[in-house]
Nucleic acid binder design. Structure first.
Lengths: 358, 358
DNA sequence: CCTAGTATCGTAAACGTTTACGGAAGGCGT
DNA sequence: ACGCCTTCCGTAAACGTTTACGATACTAGG
């Protein structure tokens, strides 16, 4: 008696049907489609034509199961309320660069949004355990980040956008906070500023730590004593900018310049300054980090630092692939962690960076 | 002779190893993990404990292959340059609502970003052909959208965010453009405005078509003749707002109010108005559609319409599931297309909506 | 004609899981 | 003692691919 434990759909579109129709063995069809060498060029043509005609595409589950690889790369992002409200489409920008590299190797990119009510570590753990992706790109790395230890232990290839002190050795790409901070300070000092404030997120976040540290060193290089009072810890948002303005006004011997670690803060900052009768650019010099399209409409515009999102994405992709056995020899030039430079974009007129002595 | 065509990793973490360790059959382990009824409660405890200990999670490929389902829902988004620069994190906001529903059914959400240099139709075709997702959520639907025909033909369950004239019957959720336009016009008229301009995207886009149509009807309801000159077609961006300001200034018998179809346009509009010596709110009433966090810092704030992104996401998820056989009876209440209402958010002070006759 | 090599293809195992089915064991009523 | 029902578990097929290996046919060299 024949048992039919699993009823199959009547019109199944599998490689089997394709093979039957062509009257070729199923193995040959597979080899033809995958570009193997030992298949007659003429039969390959027939196979490809038939596949095109029937719209056949290999089922990913079957293929993954056999090869032990999914050909999918995951980009983990967090959808916390703060991220939703305040960050721009940073990730959408990098995905384009990622895909430009991945598509050359028939790799697909999926974004994995961690729900705001779930622990990112647990979320990542679930995703890698199910083996739905071959490799991961993680971002918003913390100074100590359990996710890194997890990926290292699970031997999942990954690259991190952002440094971390966790884990042994893994590859990362991070923005050149030191370079930006140094450049900003140098520029302000060269314009005559001595009391330079900085608005940064908590030092728990890697960015908040590294950036302020570089800011301090740059100041000391110019013989300016580091004043902790000038470090304003706020959220990286417009609201944070407004609060930074608040705190700035409280400081006695008011600073003549401020560096914003997140350019969107300028929107809130400007508002608070105007409320207090202070003209941004004239009474207070402002420099923003990471150019943000929405801030281009501020009056006056502010000097900032630009980053090419697609380029960054491509670099991330190549670095990731350099760490994967199959592609390592192709991208071995990128098999190292590195700092991503940013380009200084001076405001149209630097009038707002004038001498405070005037 | 035993052949070993496929070398297996020495320390394979499969259900088989788990079963051997427990000295239970592999089938029972599977049933225990999947919560089937015919398994002793005490053995189930043992299995779950061992799985937890070894960190075992079922391989998704194997499971998908067998069940013919991936338990993954795809959310297709486009990463065109315009989207990256101008839209906010709209999708990140809705993902949270989507996940809140999906997680109840062990469904995972992945975002599928269509590269800007690839045709969205071809991209979607690839994704569904590989059968990597069980269902899709598509957005930014065009008035005629080949993607819809594709999904209908492939019998992939899907829901669209946005109406379309394509395809036979499919379910969609769309924002209540008519309601918003009507409400905005009503409100302005009640304040004494008669010449009301509107800034909208091209009528090729569904939004640009429907919204302006509702605007026209609302005007006629109040006995105001529709003046095509007052319809300003611009991009949905800050830049578009600036250009809208440009065009507005060209209009003879200048309007006293303007409705922005995208609130971010207010940033550019304000700038242009200030350049021309026109005080927004005092000399020109402004209403924005779809509240945008970044515009909250404008002076003066403007009346707008609010939408709860997570709620919208949850509604999308439930509507999608209502169309899938397995879940249809649970969510049958949502098995219909519908209009998503928005809430009017008056500006702090409505002073800017004053009588133009004053 | 014989043999070795090459080009091409078919065969079947294996990937990890789920699940229909059968079977064993025990309880219970007749 | 027998039959029946319930509870629980093991067996093995099946999902759709890929691929190691063997088989065949043909070519070439001797």
């Amino acid at each position: 008696m024949i048992r039919i434990p699993h009823e199959r759909s009547p019109q199944m579109k599998g490689i089997r049907q394709l093979a039957e129709h062509l009257d070729i063995s199923i193995g040959t069809v597979s080899r033809a489609l995958n570009g193997k060498a030992d298949v007659n060029e003429e039969t390959r043509k027939r196979v490809l034509a038939a596949a095109e005609e029937f719209g056949y595409v290999a089922n990913q589950s079957g293929r993954s199961l056999r090869q032990g690889t999914t050909n999918v790369i995951g980009l983990m992002i967090e959808s916390s309320k703060e991220t939703v409200e305040n960050s721009d489409n940073f990730f959408l920008g990098v995905t384009d660069g990622l895909q430009s590299v991945f598509s050359r190797h028939n790799l697909d990119l999926v974004m994995l949004p961690c729900p705001s009510d779930e622990d990112p570590y647990e979320y990542l753990k679930r995703m890698v355990a199910r083996r739905v992706v071959d490799a991961m790109i993680i971002s918003a790395t913390q100074r100590i980040d359990k996710r890194i230890d997890l990926l290292v232990k699970a031997k999942i290839p990954f690259v991190a956008l952002g440094r971390s002190s966790s884990g042994g050795n893994f590859t990362w790409i991070d923005l050149d906070f030191e370079g930006v901070a140094t450049c900003a300070v140098d520029r302000l000092v060269s314009k005559g500023h001595r009391r330079i404030a900085i608005a940064a997120p908590s030092s728990e976040i890697n960015l908040g730590y590294v950036f302020v540290d570089a800011y301090r060193k740059a100041l000391e290089k110019h013989g300016i004593v580091y004043d902790p009072e000038l470090v304003i810890r706020v959220k990286s948002s417009e609201q944070g900018g407004y609060r930074a303005g608040d705190e700035l006004l409280q400081i006695k011997d008011r600073p003549t310049a401020i560096i914003l670690i997140y350019e969107l803060m300028a929107i809130g900052l400007y508002r608070r300054l105007v409320e207090a009768g202070i003209v941004p650019g004239r009474d207070l010099a402002v420099i923003g980090f990471r150019e943000e399209p929405r801030a281009r409409f501020l009056q006056p515009t502010l000097t900032c630092f630009r980053i090419s999102l697609p380029d960054l994405g491509a670099a991330l992709a190549e670095t990731l692939l350099a760490g994967m056995p199959v592609y390592s020899e192709i991208y071995h030039d990128n098999a190292h962690s590195r700092i991503w430079p940013l380009k200084l974009v001076p405001a149209e007129s630097d009038a707002f960076l004038m001498q405070p002595e005037a």
